[in-house]
């Protein structure tokens, strides 16, 4: 008998009588202003939220913020990154800013959900030095429960909640931003 069969047989023999799943989560009602809560939470976890009126404002604003930037990958118009030889993620090693769309934000924890459809290349949101996410403020939900309701059974290769810049507190619990991934994360909120 192979290990698969051996393990499954032992599990079947030893598992206790069926214990039912709990009913669907019904949480307390949320009364807070979702946008305000989201902005506050993202700030608390080391990110920055900037409200803009139109998508056109974003690129000049980003360039203004990072005048020294050498390589921007902007995926807002097309999810295909330009200037990279196809299929090799190592090409993105020197990206200083990556700009991509977020699908939804979670007020309670400041996380933004996006999938590989928005990432251009899966490595981009992790390898760039600064990450800029763009989303509509109407796409903010109170908690992860509502977020997963929205995500539903959608199909993706990689989906992720991104909450603030890469960070570590492994050295004496001192918080340092930019452990391995982006050193900064900005969320541009459209109306």
């Amino acid at each position: 008998m192979g290990s698969r069969e051996k393990i499954l047989a032992a599990v079947k023999t030893n598992q206790p009588p069926l214990s039912p799943l709990p009913s669907n989560w019904q949480g307390s009602k949320h009364t807070t202003n979702l946008k305000e809560q989201f902005i506050q939470t993202v700030t608390n976890i080391g990110g920055l939220v900037i409200e803009v009126n139109s998508v056109e404002e974003i690129i000049p604003a980003v360039k203004d913020k990072f005048p020294e930037t050498t390589r921007i990958v902007n995926l807002l118009e097309s999810p295909k990154p330009t200037g990279a030889s196809l299929g090799d993620p190592h090409e993105f090693e020197n990206v200083t800013i990556a700009i991509m769309q977020g699908q939804l934000g979670v007020a309670e924890n400041g996380a933004v959900w996006l999938t590989d459809k928005q990432m251009g290349d899966r490595v981009l949101p992790y390898i760039c030095e600064n990450l800029v996410l763009v989303m509509k403020s109407t796409e903010i939900v109170p908690t992860l429960h509502e977020a997963y309701e929205r995500i539903g059974s959608s199909d993706y290769g990689l989906g992720t909640f991104l909450a603030g810049p890469s960070k570590t507190a492994d050295i004496e619990q001192s918080l340092v931003l930019g452990a391995h991934g982006p050193k900064s994360l900005m969320v541009y909120l459209l109306p």
Partner: peptide, 25 residues
């Protein structure tokens, strides 16, 4: 939704870890 709300808060007091990556394919 249940487990990710609990995990980081219990672990470090963060509302969620920076990266919660869902690998499907």
């Amino acid at each position: 939704g249940i487990f990710l709300r609990l995990l980081a808060r219990s672990a470090t007091g963060q509302p969620i870890t920076t990266y919660s990556s869902h690998f499907q394919k």
